[in-house]
Amino acid sequence: MDTPTLRSPQHRVSRTAVWYWAARAALGWLVVIAAQVFWLVMDDENALPVTTHVAALVVTAVVAVAHVTVMPQWRYRVHRWEATSAAVFTQSGWFKQEWRIAPVSRIQTVDSERGPLEQLFRLANVTVTTASAAGPIKVGGLDRDTAQRLVADLTAAAQATAGDAT
């Protein structure tokens, strides 16, 4: 039997990322719920019966709670990454699963970014781009030290190779 398959990359992202994803999803849902409440309050002419409003709110709340509790756990399980001296390898997605592999010798830029919410959780994401517009590799939800180390390692390794990486 020699049917090869890809193994998962070695590292998971930071455990804190679960809370970060949950917080980000919760914020998004809060906006939706706030809009619904606003509509309920402003709907003086009763274009929709109050019961419909409340039912919609309940449905939104249930979906929101399910999303905020399940999604981060699930995402934590499927998002993985690995960087060797030769290649960067990531796995992501739950409905559409995706693996991305890029050789370190073809890396053009390594970026690290921290949004306001990510800073709150002391997280960072790293984007590795190659000369192809189709091949950027993104690793999100890394803790700050790991991200810094990854950026330093990859930058050093990429500089060591000659050529313009096309």
Partner: peptide, 16 residues
């Protein structure tokens, strides 16, 4: 050489 470190044989397929 690029993919070799990440490829495993089929026996681990089910667990993967």
């Amino acid at each position: 050489g690029l993919l070799d470190p990440f490829i495993v044989e089929a026996r681990t397929m089910s667990t993967l």
